[in-house]
């Protein structure tokens, strides 16, 4: 019964993913980028006949729907087209770039999740105290600051003024790829990760805090007290148990913000991930790469949502029961 629900959810998401891709496809197709110019470059010396041939070969004058369908069929065959900017297959550009970004996102995601959760729980328990007030103020400020500005500020403070960290890039400039060590990579990762962590943490802290405050005010905490449970036991047995699942779910459901923040942070630190590739592709009208990135980013968001939904379905007994019956 439960597998059927997950299957249903998967199919729903797949259909939605196709629709989202179509939406992205239409947006890119309708943009004033001349696809022909994008493919052959602005200063090409091709004859009008040759141009016509290319147009027909790529089906550029066919209706959007037909072109989308062809694109979809190609995708299913593993062909995402060729990136104009990087002169490489879109799939290999995405794999290479995404492998950089995923490290950045994963680290920031875990850090902001764990730190935010712990801070949120402490704030909720000590609600109204000085620590809680300061943290809340900090979170409201950070929430109101654009991610790229946070990145700039960290750059100014830690890289320029203090000189602790490099200004940008994933690896030291002028080093051969084979010479780059893991430590080089980690060293260059620190500031982008901090930026993305700080940008994501306020949401986690504020949400967790709010939940903990609600839980502590609930009747079942009162009952636990009446039964002689001390503060530590109450937190371990009831507060954490009840706040954990919603917090984890929220963390999975926030992949969209994570991706956006990553793109901004990467651009500030010139980190060669999918975020810098996105801006490069969009600025140069690299339609195939842009489409590939749209698909991957949508897939990323959907995966997060899917995990969040499944987690809730499996872990919350109340929802599990409803789905089983």
């Amino acid at each position: 019964m439960r597998t059927r629900n997950i299957l249903y959810e998967l199919i729903r998401m797949l259909l939605l993913l196709i629709l989202v891709s179509f939406l992205a496809f239409v947006l890119i197709a309708k943009s004033p980028i001349d696809p022909l110019v994008s493919y052959i470059g602005t200063n090409s010396t091709l004859s009008p006949e040759a141009k016509q041939e290319i147009v027909e070969h790529w089906g550029l004058n066919e209706p959007v729907f037909t072109r989308f369908f062809k694109w979809l069929v190609n995708i299913l065959h593993g062909d995402m087209g060729t990136s104009i900017t990087y002169k490489k297959a879109v799939s290999s550009v995405i794999i290479e770039r995404f492998s950089y970004s995923i490290v950045l996102m994963l680290l920031a995601w875990i850090l902001s999740g764990i730190l935010g959760f712990v801070i949120g729980v402490i704030c909720g328990i000590k609600q109204g105290g000085i620590y809680d007030r300061i943290t809340k103020l900090f979170c409201l400020m950070v929430k109101s600051a654009p991610t790229f500005w946070l990145g700039l500020m960290f750059l100014v403070i830690f890289a320029v003024s203090l000189g602790w960290f490099p200004i940008g890039m994933a690896v030291p400039m002028g080093k051969l790829k084979s010479e780059v060590t893991v430590w080089d990579r980690l060293y260059h990762l620190v500031l982008p990760v901090i930026t993305l962590t700080v940008a994501n943490i306020s949401e986690v802290v504020l949400y967790t805090r709010q939940r903990v405050v609600e839980i502590i005010g609930s009747d079942y905490i009162l009952y636990a007290r009446a039964r002689g449970e001390n503060q530590g036991q109450i937190i371990r047995r009831h507060v954490l148990r009840n706040v954990m699942l919603p917090a984890i779910t929220l963390q999975f459901a926030s992949f969209s913000e994570l991706f956006g923040g990553m793109a901004l942070a990467e651009n500030v630190f010139a980190y060669p991930g999918i975020g810098t590739a996105t801006t490069a592709a969009a600025l140069s009208g690299d339609a195939p790469l842009l489409m590939g990135i749209a698909l991957i980013s949508a897939l990323f968001v959907f995966t997060g949502n899917l995990i969040a939904n499944i987690l809730y379905g499996i872990c919350d007994p109340r929802i599990r029961e409803k789905e089983e019956s």
Binding site: Y223, R225, A226, R227, G228, N230, R237, H238
Partner: peptide
């Protein structure tokens, strides 16, 4: 503190006083 939950106990109004996830 040792009396609560041992010598003195409490019966609440409804199951809302039970932890919903335990």
């Amino acid at each position: 503190p040792d009396l609560y939950g041992k010598e003195i106990s409490f019966i609440p109004q409804s199951v809302d006083y039970l932890d919903p996830l335990m």
